[in-house]
Design a protein around this nucleic acid. Sequence first.
DNA 1: GCTTGACCTTGACGCTGCGTCAACCCTCCA
DNA 2: TGGAGGGTTGACGCAGCGTCAAGGTCAAGC
Lengths: 259, 259
Amino acid sequence: MLTISQLAAYAGVTVRAVRHYHQIGLLPEPERDASGYRRYSAGAVVSLIRIRILANAGVPLSQIGQMLEADASTFAAAIEEIDRQLDDEIARLEASRKQIAQLAAGDRLALAPEVITYLDRLRDIGVSERVIAGERDSWILMSARWPDRVREWMPGKIAQLDDPQLIRLYRILSEIFESDTSDDARLVEAADILASLAEQAYRSGEIDLGEVARDDLPFDLLDALAVEADPRVQRLLDLMRERGWDGLARLERLAEPPT
Amino acid sequence: MLTISQLAAYAGVTVRAVRHYHQIGLLPEPERDASGYRRYSAGAVVSLIRIRILANAGVPLSQIGQMLEADASTFAAAIEEIDRQLDDEIARLEASRKQIAQLAAGDRLALAPEVITYLDRLRDIGVSERVIAGERDSWILMSARWPDRVREWMPGKIAQLDDPQLIRLYRILSEIFESDTSDDARLVEAADILASLAEQAYRSGEIDLGEVARDDLPFDLLDALAVEADPRVQRLLDLMRERGWDGLARLERLAEPPT
DNA sequence: GCTTGACCTTGACGCTGCGTCAACCCTCCA
DNA sequence: TGGAGGGTTGACGCAGCGTCAAGGTCAAGC
């Protein structure tokens, strides 16, 4: 008769594992000797080895019991099912690996290459890092909400960066948010340019972003994000409202502009 | 300000997950409103999305905090480490899949194809299923102890099945263990054949199994297994001992046979 | 003003497969 | 006879939440 550690050694498992199998009823509890020790027969070694073979093959312990008792066809069906699950798991992990390969640098986190290009273009134009960080966070939100649409929008956004008015706007915003003082005149200037750009876009119908619902919340969220990043953005929002526009990330015509 | 369910919805996670991230300190707890509800800023959405991106890429939650704060090179090193771990995990699962593909039928469980062939040969010879089951269990034990050596031994074992004496032995054993009566004469006959075979093997030096230690326990275990399967095996062991041989699975010369 | 349903709170167990103490008993060998 | 090296049960820990339980809160309709 064998002790638990001998049994475990023969089967190549730990003593703890054997006791675990007893607990969950996978391996029957053997008789105890006078001192309460478990005493195993040679057959237990075979049982334990058969359990380990299935476990090593990735079969969950909870299914091994039934499988050892099953007939050939039931067994085969179970094997097939396990195989499918293993395959799924492998697919999941490989998807993870692909994801992780994308995460080259912290800056790129979550962003499609098109967006990275856009941010780099802003940097070229001379936009301050603070404003770029704000843009980046906005695009992280947008990407989470519309992962596919964002990539479609980017070429248009990048093309817009050729517009001298827009470049001027970004430079003014950079100056404003890079300084610690409150320069209201510059904020007014920014608002004027923004309103002008919005007016152009409105006339040419460019504002249409496709099927993105007008009342979908992310745009409010984007504005809130900007205000959080710098409270002076609130003043900008107010100025825009005076000019007949609601919001910032997504301008909404409130009324005909005062003529 | 957002409620926890709004936050969760924006980031595409469950409320429970958000609370979990608070618990483990991954996402900072926000202020509470008058009634004790958590109230989130827009920035929290960005934080949460960044967390999920890493988590989806397979980064353990326990490491995400540091990674979000790390500089580019630390980040890259961490990514590489995670990638290695994912790769290991995938390799493990694929090994499992290969294992599982081997487990076509319950009978083959744990046995190399050579052993299956051997068992099939026994069946051809007319050995009873009960004896074959005993053989199978024995080989399961042997395979667990010496997975590689077993495959080397099998060709020799299969060749031995051409020996008429051995065939006769197996048939007698089949008859004995298939009947419920105790036919001592047959047991004696079996013992005589076995002793004769052992003597031949001993003279020709075939008994040497290579580096397998003589006192390695599995042989005792095999004998015990056989006795468990049928107590009449004990009588066979006794008869062999009378003939100067110890053991059954691995015959050990006790003394020169009585002349 | 009251009910109803949806949403918030903390606390705690469950899942998987054991590893790892803790606290104590048993056996064997010098 | 003492100490080393077995054995015993019991319980927590691990990862990442899912899922009750047992309430308090809010907004809306009557």
